[in-house]
Computed example of a mutant assay.
Amino acid sequence: MAEEMRARHGGPARRARATAVVAVGAAVTAVSAPAGAPGAPTGRAYSFVAGGAPVILEAPDGTSLNELLAELGRWAGRPRNLAADGFTDPSLTERTGLPLVEPFGDELLEMRGWAYRSHWIGCGSVATSHLERTVVVIAEREDPAVTGFPDGASWVEKLRILTGWEPVPQPAVDWRAVEADLGTSLPSDYKEIVDLFGPGGFDEYVDLLVPGALGMDLVDWARSEGYPAPKELLRWGSSEQEFDFVWQTRTANPDDWAVLVGQFGEWERFDCGLGEFLVRMLTDRRYGFPTSRLHVHFFQRALARNPGGSPPGGIASGDGDAEHRRGNTGAERPQKRPGRTAG
């Protein structure tokens, strides 16, 4: 793949640039794919990324840096600005993208970076021998859950650090209108998460219901499931694993709502806010979710606006006391842990 990227493309310059953008995007996807996943490299190539120096890929001559940034940003979100006009941010650390700029020294002109799954991905330009080259850099990324969070960080801030997410411009949610449609206020950390991340999912395991999201509109789902009947359960998330992610909305203060996770009407209760639940779901093996076994975590954006239509399905009924379900690895979660609630 690296040889393909270095090869010169024939034809008009615009066609060459477009081809380069697609080629670089495909290369980054392949090199940064988790081991064993479709498209992931094997043997020496993958071990080099996972345990060695950063991989540097050169784009063909004539490749537009802006087009390349747009292509990578389409699926990786908004980049961090690591270097501009020959000036590198002196505050960079291993946690904020330093591995992407270290290989170039004074030759670096521009560098934008993304935290994507278990890697840092950088895209920029380098000046050598009076020539400017467009490059893509891929480096290993450490798990913030292991290296530690800043003192005093909120659960939502921990979630952002954990996933390496940088907010992208998006239409603001009219929370007053949303809460009027639902007939209830919503937890403050949920609103903060939606404003920060927008529509999408964590670790390809749980997807957020977001007002206005395509097929994942919080209000549409609530209406289709007859909220607040029958048990005052309000869905906030969905999973391909056939699990229901809901709040139990029986308390007047939405910030006190418990998180329930269930399957076929059997519920496990977590007495904590949504932000804390998501961080612990991704990192705390005592919670028993398969996501806690992953090395690094990520958020994947989804389409923002729903043109209409009602969501399928519904929340199964149950007594709220069951402690059993399965994860996407097929491994059964422990049926008994210390206490009925987690927090």
Score class of each variant (00 low, 15 high):
Glu142Trp: 00
Asp143Gly: 06
Pro144Lys: 10
Pro144Val: 11
Pro144Tyr: 03
Ala145His: 14
Val146Ala: 13
Val146Glu: 14
Thr147Met: 09
Thr147Pro: 02
Gly148Ala: 07
Phe149Met: 08
Phe149Thr: 01
Pro150His: 07
Asp151Phe: 06
Asp151Lys: 00
Asp151Cys: 01
Gly152Cys: 08
Gly152Leu: 05
Ala153Arg: 04
Ala153Pro: 10
Ala153Gln: 04
Ser154Glu: 10
Ser154Tyr: 00
Val156Cys: 06
Val156Ile: 09
Val156Ser: 08
Glu157Trp: 00
Arg160Met: 12
Leu162Arg: 02
Leu162Thr: 03
Leu162Trp: 00
Gly164Ala: 09
Gly164Gln: 03
Gly164Leu: 08
Trp165Gln: 03
Glu166Asp: 12
Glu166Arg: 12
Pro167Met: 08
Val168Ser: 14
Pro169Val: 08
Pro169Ala: 14
Pro169Cys: 01
Gln170Trp: 01
Pro171His: 09
Ala172Trp: 05
Ala172Met: 12
Val173Gly: 02
Val173Ile: 15
Asp174Lys: 11
Asp174Ser: 14
Asp174Met: 11
Arg176Met: 08
Arg176Thr: 15
Ala177Trp: 05
Val178Asp: 04
Val178Lys: 03
Val178Thr: 14
Glu179Asn: 02
Ala180His: 06
Ala180Cys: 10
Ala180Met: 06
Asp181Arg: 15
Asp181Ser: 15
